[in-house]
């Protein structure tokens, strides 16, 4: 595989939040509350991604940033699901699970230190949001949507989350193992997995913001 190609993917991935974020700022006044949360997330994500890239270029360990992004990401996406889940029980569960996640996060941080890869939090996060996405799809099918899903911003948002987290699940859960045992060349290759999925996710988020319309 061409080395430059890998670098290209990693760089593109780092900047991929620009597209949906730009669109989100452009359409800000007409965005639903959930999409405003998403835009805020995109802003933070872009910030950390660029910082991560800079740190890597300056040979500084960037893994602590992943912890920061993970906890922010979990909080913001949970907030979105708290809003879009209709059932009261689900809303309550989102809060409880967020609290449990925070526990896992703190324990993992305490045991492995900030310089380690956030394996446990990332894995748990992937599982949780994969399940949320499936639950939300179920909610869509059970409810009576009056318009096609291609015009439903939350459908695309949910698709983005599902693709990213389901696709990255193996990578995240094996990340510590990979960092410990795989050759550096192999690590480079494997790290493109979340990068590619990240680009796909941001594209789907772009569609979500693109199709969104002010309700009523």
């Amino acid at each position: 595989m061409n080395v430059d190609f890998l670098q290209l993917i990693l760089t593109t991935s780092s900047y991929s939040a620009i597209l949906p974020l730009g669109l989100g700022i452009f359409k800000w006044r007409s965005l639903s509350f959930e999409l405003k949360i998403l835009s805020a997330y995109l802003f933070l994500s872009l910030l950390t991604d660029i910082t991560t890239l800079q740190l890597a270029n300056n040979l500084i360990n960037n893994l602590p940033l992943l912890y920061v992004l993970t906890v922010l990401e979990f909080a913001l996406f949970s907030w979105v699901y708290y809003n879009i889940f209709e059932s009261f029980h689900l809303k309550k569960s989102v809060i409880v699970i967020a609290a449990l996640f925070f526990l896992v996060f703190v324990i993992s941080l305490y045991q492995n230190g900030v310089s380690s890869y956030a394996t446990a939090p990332r894995t748990v996060e992937s599982i949780v949001f994969t399940i949320y996405a499936i639950i939300y799809f179920n909610q869509i099918l059970k409810g009576n949507h009056s318009f096609g899903l291609e015009k439903d911003a939350m459908f695309w948002f949910n698709g983005g989350l599902l693709v990213y987290f389901a696709g990255s699940l193996l990578f995240f859960s094996l990340s510590s193992f990979i960092l410990e045992h795989a050759s550096l060349e192999m690590q480079r290759k494997l790290f493109t997995t979340p990068a590619i999925l990240n680009i796909v996710q941001k594209l789907l988020f772009t569609i979500a913001i693109w199709v969104s319309q002010r309700k009523k």
């Binding site: 949507h145 389901a166 094996l174």
Partner: peptide, 26 residues
């Protein structure tokens, strides 16, 4: 690498199938 790719692609396949299923059914 092969195992990893197979697993990841498998999960991705499941995810896309689900999305497609929801879309078509709706």
């Amino acid at each position: 690498l092969l195992l990893f790719l197979t697993g990841t692609l498998g999960l991705l396949f499941l995810a896309s199938t689900l999305i497609l299923f929801v879309f078509i059914n709706q």
